[in-house]
Design a protein around this nucleic acid. Structure first.
Length: 836
DNA sequence: TGATCCCGCCAACGT
DNA sequence: ACGTTGGCGGGATCA
C-alpha cells in the first residue's frame, strides 16, 4: 500500500497538481496555509500537550489522516468543518494545524509519549518508523529527524531499516558522560572561548588574522570527519548503523550536547554552536548559507532536545544584542572519574547507589581529530579500515528486514532467530567455509556477529548493560556454539580487562588466531589498549560478587528505574526474565516480518539446543532457552527449566561453585550469580567476558581490579543473554591449555580465592602483552592524545565555582594560543539569560 | 524584521 | 528499479 511508501511522494504529487490547477496561486513554494483558522482557543503548550497525548486516539488519527489527504485549500476547509462537527467540543483543536502544531518539538513530544522513559525489558520496545509516522501522521522524514537525535543520545538504536529499539533514558547518563568527555577532549571549551573572543574583537575589526586565528583555535583541522560517539553496547546499532557519509544530524546533535556539557554556565547560543560545528569541518568558508543551514539544523536538534527536557530556550543578551540560546536543563553530568581528574565541586562523595555512577566514559569511539598542529591524524589505513567496517555494518544492518539467508556475514539473521542458534554448527561451518577469504575481514565479521549489537562494533566492544542489548547479543550465540563445536571452532570471545574506562571488551577470535588475543579499544585508534588499568585487577572479594549480582551491568540501575528498588538479589532474576521475554518478542517480531519460514522448526531446534546444554555450550544455549522460554509452550518451558537446573548443578567443569540451594535461598537463578565466567573455546581461543564495572559498589578506586570478575559476570549476563547458572563456564578440556583457567576452584564465588583471581588476571595480562594483542584493529592506532593535560588552568576553567574567573588559558598544545584573562572575552559575565 | 523551522526535493545508499 | 535515509535550503510563519 502506498502508506508504506514514502508519504512524501503523495504530498508532492498533490502539491504539483495543485500547482498545476492554480498556477498563480502558490507556484512552487510551500503551499500557503489557508489563513482562516479557527479563532477558537489560542494555542497553548497545554493544549498541545493534550492534543498530543490524545493523539493516539483513533478518532483524532482519522481526522488527521483525512486532513492529510487534502492538501488542497478548499478541501482542507471542508475537511476542517467536517472534522469540527465530528469532534466533540473538548477535542477541539484547530483542525487546520498551525505551524506550531506541526512543529518538530510537538511531534517529538508525541513521539516520546509513546514510550516510557525507562522501559522495562519486558515490554515491546520496538519502533517501526512506518508505524510511528503513520500514527503520528507525519512524513517519515520528520521521524527521522527525531530518531536521529534520539539516537545520538542512545535513547534508541537502530535495529534494522525501519526498525529501532527504544531504550529510553537508561543510557542517558552514560551517554552524557561520554559526550562530556569527548567534548572536553575536543577542547570545546577553548573553542567556545575562541569564538567569543573573536566576536569581541570583531568590534574592533581585527579582521586580518581572523582566519589564522580560527585555524589555530581549531587546531590544524584536517577535516574532522564527524564521528559518532558510541556507547558501549550501542555501537553496532547506533552509529554504525548506516553510515551515511557523516551522519551529520546525529553527530551534530552530540556535539551540540557536548557544548552544553563543557560550558560552565550551561548555556550555548545557537550562533556559537553553529560556528563551532562548522568550524570543525570547514573553517575556511564560513559562508553565510552554510551558517544558516547549520542554524536550521540546530533548531531541529534543539527542538528534540527540548522535548526531552534536556535544554530549554533562553536568550542571552550581550553587547551584540539578544541572541537565541539554549540552556541545559538536563541532568548534571558528573565528571567521569577516571578519564579526567576534573572534579566537580559538589558531588565528590561516592554515593552508594548513585545513579550517575562513574560509568566510564564509554565513549567508545572518539574520532575527533585532535586539536593542535601536532595532532595525530588518523592513519590512512585506519580510515580504510573504518570504511570497510562501516560497510560491513551497513550490510548487516539492513539484513533483518530482508529475506533471511544464512550468510556468515549476516549475523543479524541469527540474532533475530534464536532458534536458529541451534543450527549453529552448520552455520558455523558455513561461515568458515565462506570465510576462507580475507581472514581479517572475517575476523571482523565474526567479532561483530558474536558480539553483535552489544559489543560488537569492531571498534569498540563493550558490554552494555542495557536491556536492549539482549537481543542483539544473540548473534553471539551462534558463534559461541561454533566455537564449542568440535569440528569448527570459529571464534571465541576473549576477555580483556578494559583499560581506560575499566570496561572489558569481549573479542571473538578466529580459530586461526586463537593464540592471539585481539582487542578493540574503545577509542579505536586513539587509545591503543592501555594496560595500565589492567594491573589493577586484584582482590576480588565478596563485594564483587555482590556487586555483580547487583549491577548486572545494566544501565537501568542508573536511573529511576523501577527495578532499582528491588533488592539486589531480586533484580537479576527479574531482569533476565524480562530480557528473555524481550528476546522472544523481538524474534517474534522479526519473524512475522520477514522470515516466517525460518522458524518453522523451532521445536526441533529447541530440542537440539537442549541436547547441547550438557555439552558445555552453555552460553548460547542458555540464551536460546531464555528467549524461547517466554514464548513457548509450558511443556517446553518446563523442559527448559529443568534443563537449567541440571545445568547449573552440573558437574561440568567450570561451573560455578554456587550451589542450587544457595541460589534458591536468594531466589536467584544461579546463573545470575556466577562470579566469574570465562568461556574458553576448544580451539584455545579465549572467550572473554567484558564487563562494565560501574557502580555503586565500586569503590572510589577506579582501578579495574575488582572489575575483572565482575566484568566477566556482566559480560555473561549481558551478552550471553542471562545465561542460566552453571552454564557459564564450559569446562572444555580442550581449552585447558589456555592460559586462563576456568576451573571451578577459580570461580568460587567468594573472596577466598583472591590468588586464583590474580592468576587469571595475570593470564589476561599476559595475553594483553602479547604483541598481537591489539591486532589489526588497533594496529594503525596512533598514540592517543596525551590525556588532556590537566593543567591547573583547565581545572579551573571547568570549575563550576568560578565562572567569572576564567584564568589565562593556554588553549593549544602547541602553545601558540595563549589567551590571557584580560583579553579573553567572557560573555558569561555579561550574560543575561532570559527565559521565555 | 529577525527568529524559527516546516516542507519536501532529491541524492546517497541499499536491496 | 525501487525503497529507505537524510542533507539541504527555500521560503512560510511566528514573535
Amino acid at each position: 500500500r502506498s502508506i508504506l511508501k514514502t508519504p512524501l511522494k503523495q504530498a508532492a504529487t498533490s502539491h504539483s497538481v495543485l500547482t498545476e490547477l492554480q498556477p498563480d496561486c502558490q507556484p512552487l513554494t510551500t503551499p500557503t496555509k489557508p489563513k482562516e483558522i479557527l479563532p477558537v482557543d489560542p494555542w497553548t503548550p497545554t493544549s498541545n500537550l493534550k492534543m498530543l497525548i490524545s493523539a493516539a486516539s483513533p478518532e483524532i488519527r482519522n481526522r488527521e489522516q483525512r486532513r492529510e489527504l487534502s492538501n488542497n485549500p478548499s478541501e482542507v476547509l471542508q475537511a476542517k468543518h467536517c472534522l469540527q462537527e465530528h469532534l466533540s467540543g473538548d477535542e477541539y483543536e484547530k483542525s487546520q494545524p498551525s505551524r506550531k502544531e506541526k512543529s518538530l518539538g510537538l511531534l517529538c513530544h508525541k513521539f516520546l509519549a509513546r514510550y516510557p522513559n525507562y522501559p522495562s525489558t519486558a515490554e515491546n520496545n520496538f519502533i517501526c518508523l512506518d508505524e510511528v509516522a503513520e500514527e503520528l501522521n507525519v512524513e517519515r522524514r520528520r521521524i527521522y529527524d527525531i530518531v536521529n537525535v534520539l539516537e545520538s543520545l542512545h535513547m534508541v538504536s537502530r535495529l534494522a531499516k525501519n526498525r529501532y529499539v527504544w531504550h529510553g533514558r537508561h543510557n542517558l547518563s552514560k551517554t552524557l558522560q561520554a559526550l562530556k568527555k569527548v567534548g572536553e577532549e575536543n577542547k570545546y571549551t577553548q573553542q567556545i572561548q575562541m569564538i567569543k573572543k573573536r566576536e569581541h574583537e570583531h568590534e574592533f575589526d581585527f579582521g586580518g588574522e581572523k582566519k589564522e586565528e580560527i585555524a589555530r583555535s581549531f587546531g590544524s583541522n584536517e577535516h574532522s570527519e564527524m564521528s559518532f560517539v558510541e556507547l558501549p553496547g550501542m555501537e553496532f546499532r547506533a552509529a554504525s548503523v548506516n553510515s551515511r557519509k557523516d551522519k551529520s544530524l546525529r553527530v551534530m546533535s552530540q556535539k551540540f550536547v557536548m557544548l552544553f556539557l563543557v560550558s560552565t554556565p550551561q548555556i550555548v547560543s545557537l550562533e556559537i554552536a553553529a560556528k563551532i560545528l562548522i568550524g570543525e569541518d570547514q573553517l575556511e568558508d564560513l559562508d553565510k548559507s552554510k551558517f544558516k543551514t547549520k542554524i536550521r539544523r540546530l533548531y531541529d536538534i534543539a527542538n528534540v532536545l527540548s522535548s526531552l527536557e534536556l535544554i530549554k530556550k533562553v536568550h542571552v543578551t550581550e553587547e551584540r544584542g539578544r541572541k537565541p540560546a539554549f540552556k541545559w536543563t538536563g541532568p548534571d553530568v558528573l565528571p567521569n572519574i577516571q578519564g579526567t581528574k576534573l572534579e566537580t565541586t559538589s558531588t565528590t562523595h561516592p554515593p552508594p547507589t548513585s545513579e550517575s555512577i562513574p560509568s566510564k566514559e564509554q565513549c567508545s569511539k572518539n574520532l575527533f581529530p585532535l586539536k593542535g598542529k601536532q595532532n595525530f591524524t588518523r592513519h590512512p589505513s585506519l580510515m580504510k579500515l573504518v570504511k570497510s567496517i562501516e560497510n560491513d555494518r551497513r550490510k548487516i544492518q539492513s539484513a533483518p528486514t530482508s529475506p533471511i539467508k544464512i550468510r556468515a556475514s549476516t549475523d543479524q539473521n541469527l540474532s533475530a532467530f534464536p532458534s536458529e542458534m541451534v543450527q549453529v554448527p552448520a552455520i558455523t561451518k558455513h561461515q568458515l567455509e565462506g570465510q576462507s577469504k580475507k581472514e581479517k575481514e572475517m575476523k571482523m565479521k565474526l567479532s561483530r556477529s558474536a558480539l553483535d549489537c552489544n559489543l560488537s562494533s569492531p571498534d569498540v566492544l563493550k558490554p552494555e548493560a542495557s536491556c536492549s542489548a539482549v537481543l542483539p547479543q544473540q548473534p553471539a550465540l551462534p558463534q559461541a556454539l561454533g566455537v564449542c563445536s568440535p569440528s569448527h571452532g570459529s571464534v571465541s570471545p576473549v576477555i580483556l580487562p578494559q583499560t581506560h574506562s575499566g570496561v572489558s571488551y569481549a573479542i571473538y577470535l578466529h580459530p586461526s588466531q586463537a593464540h592471539t588475543v585481539t582487542t578493540y579499544s574503545p577509542s579505536f585508534m586513539l587509545q591503543p589498549l592501555p594496560c595500565a588499568n589492567v594491573t589493577g585487577i586484584k582482590s576480588i572479594n565478596s563485594k564483587v560478587v555482590n556487586k555483580m549480582t547487583t549491577e548486572e551491568g545494566d544501565n537501568q540501575i542508573a536511573t529511576g528505574d523501577p527495578t532499582k528498588s528491588l533488592t539486589t538479589k531480586e533484580r537479576p532474576a527479574i531482569k533476565s526474565e524480562a530480557s528473555s521475554q524481550r528476546c522472544f518478542k523481538r524474534s517474534q517480531a522479526l519473524q512475522e516480518n520477514h522470515l516466517p519460514k525460518r522458524y518453522r522448526s523451532d521445536k526441533e531446534s529447541l530440542d537440539t539446543s537442549l541436547s547441547f546444554f550438557p555439552s558445555g555450550y552453555l552460553i548460547p544455549l542458555a540464551q536460546c532457552t531464555h528467549s524461547n522460554k517466554a514464548g513457548f509452550s509450558n511443556e517446553e518451558k518446563a523442559g527448559m527449566c529443568s534443563l537449567q537446573h541440571t545445568t547449573y548443578s552440573s558437574p561440568v567443569a567450570g561451573v560455578i561453585p554456587m550451589t542450587a540451594s544457595e541460589l534458591k535461598a536468594v531466589n536467584i537463578p544461579a546463573f545470575q550469580i556466577t562470579p566469574l565466567n570465562i568461556m574458553l573455546s576448544p580451539t584455545s581461543s579465549i572467550a572473554a567476558a567484558p564487563v562494565l564495572s560501574n557502580s555503586s559498589l565500586n569503590s572510589s578506586n577506579t582501578s579495574s581490579a575488582p572489575n575483572l570478575s565482575s566484568s566477566v559476570l556482566n559480560f555473561t549476563l549481558q551478552h550471553v543473554g542471562l545465561i542460566p547458572a552453571g552454564v557459564q563456564v564450559p569446562a572444555n578440556p580442550v581449552l585447558r591449555h589456555v592460559p586462563i583457567t576456568s576451573q571451578p576452584e577459580n570461580i568460587s564465588h567468594c573472596s577466598e580465592n583472591v590468588s586464583l583471581q590474580e592468576k587469571v588476571r595475570k593470564n589476561i595480562l599476559q595475553l594483553l602483552d602479547h604483541g598481537e594483542l591489539t591486532g589489526k584493529y588497533s594496529a594503525p592506532c596512533v598514540p592517543k592524545e596525551p590525556q588532556m593535560p590537566q593543567t591547573p588552568t583547565e581545572n579551573f576553567f571547568r570549575t563550576p565555582g568560578g565562572p567569572n574567573t576564567v584564568p589565562s588559558l593556554s588553549a593549544n598544545s602547541d602553545g601558540t594560543n595563549t589567551i590571557s584573562q584580560e583579553t579573553l572575552y567572557i560573555p558569561q559575565r555579561k550574560l543575561e539569560v532570559s527565559e521565555d
